[in-house]
Nucleic acid binder design. Structure first.
Length: 842
RNA sequence: GCGGGUGUGGCGGAAUGGUAGACGCCGGGGACUUAAAAUCCCCUGAUCCUAUAGAUCGUGCGAGUUCGAGUCUCGCCACCCGCACCA
C-alpha cells in the first residue's frame, strides 16, 4: 500500500481538459434519454468570481452531475448577464470601453469557473451584450409591440440624478436609487412600457401551481402584485364636479365622515390655484420623507378645501380635505374616510374633530359601544347603517356594490399594486430599443431585416448622461416609411429584459430567430433553478411575465419558465477590525493569524477584534478569493466545503479550519480509494448493507438539495469502510463511495477511477451510472430496541428485526435496569413499538 | 403595523411524535517520530456522585395534548428577511 497524496494542482486541470475534449457535458437535444434542465442564475461579469457564485454553481453542478448519472440528458449551461451600469461606471472612471471591460471580465471569470470543474455545456455560452443575442431580443420586443404589449407614454418617472437615468419602481428603495443611493427626483419623460399588468391576474393565479417554489417567494410576489377588490364610485361635489374614490370597505359607507384627496390630485390642484394656504400645505406634503421610519412617525395632516361631497345614500355633505396620507398613484388618489374602521382615518378624524361612527360591531347589541382609542378593522355585523343593518361585512359589501351598479354611481373594481414595467433607460450599455422617431410618421419600428440595431463603438463617457444621445451620427437615419429625416430611439432596454428570456436561448440558438419552439419544448421548463433570494421579485416576476407574453403571441406553449426554484443562502465570514478613534478599520482574513478564540494581526502581532459573521463584502474586507482557495486546497476541497455543514438555504460561515478539514477529507478518501481493486474475497454483510443504505439516502438527499446531509452520510460510510477488514464487501463499499462523491469531488473521483483501472472502472466516472440499490439490503436483520420506564430511557437491547410485541415486552421486563427502576411498582400498561421501543408505564 | 422565517453543546448543524446532539469543526489526552508535519486511537452537553456503574437536568420562555414532545396545539420572547399611510 503506497502512501501517496492526491495532488489537485496536477489532477484538476487534467480532468477538466479531458471533459472538454470528450464534450462530456454538452447537451444533446436529440438524445433518447429523458431531459433535465438545471440552471443557476447567470452572473453579471463584475470582475471576479466570488464565493457566493462558487456556492450557487456547486449546488447546481452536483445536481446536474447526479442527474447525468441517473440517466438523464442534462442541459447545464452558463452565460453572462453582460449589460449594466458598472461597465459604464468603469468607462467613466478608467477610460476603458464598457464592451472591452466586460469582455475582459468574462474571460477572467470563465477561467475561474473552469478551474472549479463545473459540468457546464460551454458550447452554448453567450453574453447578453452579443449583438447575436440582443438583436433577437429586439425582434421579440417588436413582436410584443405588434401584439399591443408595448406602449409609449409620457409619464412621471423616477430620475436618478447621479446615474442620470430612469429607475423602475422596483429599483427605488426608500426613495433612493438602488445603485447610487441618491435621492430620486420626479420627471416627466416619454417612456416605453411593457404591459405586465395585462397578466396581473394570471401571474397571481400561476403562483398557486408553483409547488416547487419556496412559499416565501410566492408570498413576496403575491404581495408585490397586490390584488385588492372593492368599489369605485363617484361623489358629487359641491362645486359641481364628480370625485371618484376607491374603497375596499363599501360595507362601512354609512360610517364615512369625510373625503380626502392626494396632494397632487386635480381637485387639490384646483384649490391650490386659488389659495396660498392650500399651496403651502401641498408643498409641505411633497417635501415629506418617504422612508419607513418617517412614514411611521408622520402625523396625519389635512387641509380643508371648503368643498363638500354628497353621501350617495344619506345625501349628507362630507367635508373634502387634501391629506398627506393619500397616495395619488394608488386607486383614484382619493378616499372616503371611515374613522371607526380604518386606523389612518381614525387618527385623522381625531385630529380634526370629525365624527367617528360605529358601523361594524361584534353583535347588534354593541351598536353604541365606544372605540378604545383605535379603529376596529375586523369582521362583525353591520350597525347604524340603514338597510345594511344586521348584514355580515361580506354581504354588505356585495349589497352596496350591486346598489351602486344599479343606480349607476359606482361599480365593483379590482385594483392592483403592480404597475406596468417602464423599460426605457437613458444609458449606452444596453439593448437599443429598435424604433425611430420621424417628424412625419411618428414612432416607427425598425424592420426586422435591419436588426440588430447595434451599439456604436466610438462613444464618449466623460460627460454625464446618455452617450447615444450625444453621438454625432448614430441616431440620424432615414424614415422607413416616408424616406425623410428621422432619429433613432436613444434609450436602451432595462437590463432585466436581458435576463427575462436567456433561459430560452440556452435551450436553442438558431441564427434566424430568438429560439426554436420545438427545441425549447424539449428542455423547458427548467427543472431546477437556483439563485439568490434577492431576485425573488424583480427577475423572477419579469421572467414569468416574458414567458407568458411569448406564450400569448404564440411563440411558446407554456407559461411558467421554472418548475422548481431554490434560493440559496449567502457565504459569510467573520470580520476583523480595530477601533481607531470613532471608526473601525477592517482587516482581510489574509492579514490575520487566527487562534482558538482570538486573532492577531500578522504585521504587528497585536490582537484585533473579531466581529460579527456577515455576508462577505469588500467594504468589511471579510472576503476570500476562490482562486486562492483553489491554489491552496484544490477545487474538490472548495466544492466539498460549499456543500458541508450548513443547509443550503441558510448562510454558510466560511472558515479556514473548515476548508482545511475538507482538504484533509479529500486525502483521506484518496488513501481509502488506493486500497480498492485487486483480488479480495469474503463478506461483510453489515458494511454492504450500510453501503446500500447510503446509496439510497444520498440520492434522496441530493434530490432534496440537502447536500449537508449527503455529506454527513458519506463521512459515516467512509469511517465504516476505513475500519473494516479487507473483503469483497469492503471493496464494494469503497467503489460505492467513489461513485457517490463523484458529483461533489469530480476530480478526485476521476483520478481514483482511472487508478483502479479495471473493467468495472472503464471510461470516465462522469459517464458512469449511479449505483443500484438492492432493496433487500436496506433492511437490517437486527435492531436496537429502546426500553423506557414512564418515557425515560433505562436500557437498550438488541433484538431480531420484526420480533413479536409479546416477546419484546418479555425481553424488556427481563431487563435488570428496568426492574430496578420499576422498583416493584405495578405495571399498568406496556407500549410496544415494533423494532423501536418498549415503554413500561407504572 | 402586516406577512414570512429562525431559535438544539464552545461553533456549523442531525433527528417519519419513539434512544436528543448523527456528521463536521474547535478543544483535551495518547500512539508513531530524533523532532515536526502527516496519520492513527481515545475523550469531549451540564451538574451530582459512594465514579468500569449510576442519578438528575437539558432543544429560546410558559402552559397544554400524549404512555412518550426538539417535533403537535395555545400564549409569549428574541433575532433575521420581505412589504408598507395600498384606502
Amino acid at each position: 500500500m503506497t502512501d501517496t497524496r492526491f495532488d489537485p494542482s496536477q489532477s484538476d486541470g487534467r480532468w477538466q481538459a479531458a471533459w472538454d475534449k470528450a464534450g462530456t457535458f454538452n447537451a444533446d437535444s436529440n438524445s433518447p434519454r429523458p431531459k433535465s434542465y438545471v440552471l443557476e442564475m447567470f452572473p453579471y461579469p463584475s470582475g471576479r468570481i466570488h464565493m457566493g457564485h462558487v456556492r450557487n454553481y456547486t449546488m447546481g453542478d452536483v445536481l446536474a452531475r447526479y442527474k447525468r448519472m441517473r440517466g438523464f440528458e442534462v442541459l447545464h449551461p452558463m452565460g453572462w448577464d453582460a449589460f449594466g451600469m458598472p461597465a459604464e461606471n468603469a468607462a467613466m472612471e478608467k477610460g476603458v470601453h464598457p464592451g472591452g471591460w466586460t469582455r475582459q471580465n468574462i474571460e477572467t471569470m470563465k477561467a475561474q469557473l473552469k478551474r472549479i470543474g463545473f459540468a457546464l455545456d460551454w458550447s452554448r455560452e453567450f453574453a447578453t451584450c452579443d449583438p447575436e443575442y440582443y438583436g433577437h431580443e429586439q425582434a421579440l420586443f417588436l413582436d410584443l409591440y405588434e401584439a399591443g404589449l408595448v406602449y409609449r407614454r409620457s409619464s412621471e418617472v423616477n430620475w436618478d440624478p447621479v446615474d442620470m437615468t430612469v429607475l423602475a419602481n422596483e429599483q427605488v428603495i426608500d426613495g433612493k436609487g438602488w445603485r447610487s443611493g441618491a435621492e430620486v427626483e420626479k420627471r416627466k419623460l416619454d417612456q416605453w412600457f411593457l404591459k405586465i399588468t395585462h397578466f396581473a391576474e394570471d401571474l397571481l393565479q400561476g403562483l398557486d401551481g408553483l409547488d416547487g417554489w419556496p412559499e416565501k417567494v410566492r408570498l413576496m410576489q403575491e404581495n408585490w402584485i397586490g390584488k385588492s377588490q372593492g368599489i369605485e364610485f363617484s361623489f358629487d361635489l359641491s362645486n359641481g364636479e364628480k370625485l371618484p374614490v376607491y374603497s375596499t370597505r363599501p360595507d362601512t359607507i354609512f360610517g364615512a365622515s369625510f373625503v380626502a384627496v392626494a396632494a397632487d390630485h386635480p381637485v387639490a390642484q384646483a384649490v391650490v390655484a386659488a389659495s396660498d394656504a392650500a399651496r403651502e400645505f401641498v408643498d409641505m406634503c411633497k417635501r415629506g420623507g418617504t422612508t419607513a421610519a418617517e412614514l411611521e412617525t408622520a402625523e396625519k395632516q389635512g387641509f380643508e378645501t371648503g368643498i363638500t361631497a354628497r353621501h350617495p345614500f344619506t345625501g349628507a355633505p362630507l367635508p373634502v380635505f387634501i391629506a398627506n396620507f393619500v397616495l395619488m398613484d394608488y386607486g383614484t388618489g382619493a378616499v372616503m374616510g371611515v374613522p371607526g374602521h380604518d386606523q389612518r382615518d381614525f387618527e385623522f378624524a381625531t385630529k380634526y374633530d370629525l365624527p367617528i361612527e360605529r358601523v361594524v360591531a361584534s353583535d347588534p347589541n354593541a351598536a353604541d359601544k365606544p372605540f378604545a382609542g383605535e379603529a376596529e378593522s375586523g369582521d362583525g355585523v353591520i350597525v347604524n347603517s340603514d338597510f345594511l343593518d344586521g348584514k355580515s361585512v361580506d354581504d354588505a359589501k356585495a349589497d352596496v356594490i350591486s346598489r351602486a351598479e344599479q343606480a349607476g354611481w359606482g361599480q365593483g373594481t379590482t385594483v392592483w399594486r403592480l404597475r406596468d414595467w417602464g423599460i426605457s433607460r437613458q444609458r449606452y450599455w444596453g439593448t437599443p430599443i429598435p424604433f425611430i422617431h420621424c417628424d412625419v410618421c411618428g414612432v416607427v419600428p425598425v424592420p426586422k431585416d435591419q436588426l440588430p440595431v447595434t451599439l456604436p463603438e466610438d462613444v464618449d463617457f466623460q460627460t454625464p448622461g446618455n452617450p447615444l444621445l450625444r453621438h454625432p451620427t448614430w441616431k440620424h437615419v432615414d424614415c422607413q416609411q416616408c424616406g425623410g429625416k428621422a432619429a433613432r430611439e436613444t434609450d436602451t432596454l432595462d437590463t432585466f429584459t436581458n435576463s427575462s428570456w436567456y433561459f430560452l436561448r440556452f435551450a436553442s440558438q438558431p441564427d434566424d430567430k430568438p429560439f426554436d419552439a420545438e427545441e425549447v419544448a424539449k428542455w423547458l421548463p427548467v427543472e431546477q433553478y437556483i439563485g439568490g433570494i434577492e431576485h425573488a421579485i424583480l427577475h423572477l416576476l419579469y421572467a414569468r411575465f416574458w414567458t407568458r407574453a411569448l406564450q400569448h403571441i404564440g411563440l411558446l406553449n407554456f407559461a411558467e419558465p421554472f418548475a422548481s426554484l431554490f434560493t440559496q443562502g449567502m457565504v459569510t465570514h467573520e470580520t476583523y477590525y480595530r477601533q481607531d478613534g470613532g471608526r473601525a478599520i477592517f482587516f482581510t482574513p489574509d492579514e490575520i493569524e487566527r487562534g482558538g478564540d482570538s486573532a492577531t494581526l500578522k504585521a504587528d502581532g497585536d490582537p484585533v477584534d473579531i466581529g460579527r459573521v456577515i455576508k462577505m463584502s469588500k467594504s468589511k474586507k471579510n472576503v476570500v478569493d476562490p482562486d486562492n482557495i483553489i491554489d491552496s486546497y484544490g477545487a474538490d476541497a472548495a466544492r466539498w466545503f460549499m456543500l458541508s455543514d450548513s443547509p443550503p438555504e441558510r448562510d454558510l460561515p466560511w472558515s479556514e479550519a473548515g476548508i482545511e478539514g475538507c482538504a484533509r477529507f479529500v486525502q483521506r478518501l484518496w488513501r481509502l480509494f488506493e486500497t480498492a481493486g485487486g483480488p479480495v474475497e469474503g463478506e461483510d454483510k453489515a458494511l454492504e448493507r450500510k453501503a446500500h443504505q447510503t446509496i439510497a439516502a444520498v440520492a434522496d438527499d441530493i434530490e432534496a438539495l440537502s447536500f449537508n446531509k449527503a455529506v454527513a452520510r458519506l463521512y459515516e460510510l467512509t469511517g465504516a469502510a476505513e475500519k473494516a477488514a479487507p473483503s469483497a464487501s469492503r471493496d464494494f463499499a469503497i467503489r460505492t463511495i467513489l461513485l457517490l462523491v463523484a458529483p461533489m469531488m469530480p476530480h478526485l473521483a476521476e483520478e481514483a477511477w482511472a487508478k483502479i483501472g479495471d473493467a468495472e472502472t472503464d471510461g470516465l466516472i462522469a459517464d458512469a451510472p449511479w449505483p443500484e440499490v438492492d432493496p433487500a439490503m436496506l433492511v437490517e436483520d437486527e435492531v436496537t430496541i429502546a426500553i423506557q420506564h414512564k418515557g425515560k430511557l433505562r436500557d437498550t437491547i438488541t433484538a431480531a428485526k420484526g420480533m413479536a410485541k409479546d416477546d419484546l415486552e418479555a425481553l424488556a421486563l427481563a431487563s435488570e435496569k428496568v426492574q430496578r427502576s420499576i422498583d416493584g411498582a405495578a405495571v399498568r400498561k406496556v407500549i410496544v413499538v415494533p423494532d423501536r421501543l418498549v415503554n413500561i408505564v407504572t
